[in-house]
Amino acid sequence: MRKLKTLLCATGLLAMLSAGSAQAAGQEEMIEMGKAVYLNKSRGNCVSCHQINDPDATQAGNQGPPIVAMKQRFPDKAVLRAQVWDATVNNPITIMPPLGKHWILSEAEIDAVVEYVYQF
């Protein structure tokens, strides 16, 4: 299984939308971006429903499960990505917004937030 991003990189569109730029950036920068997405109310706002063991994630809500043991729960990181992208696939009445399917976050932001939570 693979992503053939290169195929599309020819298109100028990708410059803005693709995960390419985020991947080019270092892992650390990506995690930092992911954290911002996680905490920022107008971006991911994940903290409103998911507790996470990060001292900056204060007053986290508990509508969703806490972000713990992510590597055990999602051995395949792509499955976690899919859950962020559209949680309604597994539960049509979930309160979790389909962050990718509804283009609430860009694909790069989704990659970043997945990297961030995958540490926990």
């Binding site: 991003k5 990708l14 693709s18 792509a78 990505r81 696939v89």
Partner: peptide, 21 residues
């Protein structure tokens, strides 16, 4: 949707013997 969800924009997937992005 599944390909896009798991691997992002441009992910290649197969359907009915053909490949798509």
């Amino acid at each position: 949707l599944q390909a896009r969800a798991m691997y992002g924009q441009g992910a290649v997937f197969e359907w009915n013997g053909k490949q798509y992005a």
